[in-house]
């Protein structure tokens, strides 16, 4: 099990959110949208210019910029 940030994941990967690396208003906003520690998040695809990135979480699709995704620490779900 490796610990990395959300922006580094390949499309198709599943991961569990572990926590946030930085403070800031975005952190709260993301949490309210359902990105809490313990939540499963799937990386779907990247925009044509590589940024932002689309994820699936709690049953819906959300897009985050790389910068925001970089502040979310995750653990890849093996298997």
């Amino acid at each position: 099990m490796s610990t990395i940030t959300l922006d580094g994941l390949e499309p198709g990967s599943r991961a569990i959110i572990k926590g946030f690396a930085a403070n800031g208003p975005a952190r709260r906003r993301m949490a309210e949208m359902g990105l809490c520690p313990g939540t499963e998040i799937v990386t779907l695809r990247r925009a044509p210019l590589d940024d932002p990135i689309e994820f699936q979480v709690r049953g819906y699709n959300i897009s985050l910029r790389k910068a925001e995704a970089a502040s979310i620490i995750v653990e890849i779900k093996e298997g």
């Binding site: 975005a26 993301m30 897009s63 910029r65």
Partner: peptide, 12 residues
């Protein structure tokens, strides 16, 4: 302002 976050839902 700090780059405003881009957190957006993509509805079906």
């Amino acid at each position: 302002s700090e780059t405003s976050p881009f957190i957006m839902e993509l509805p079906p």
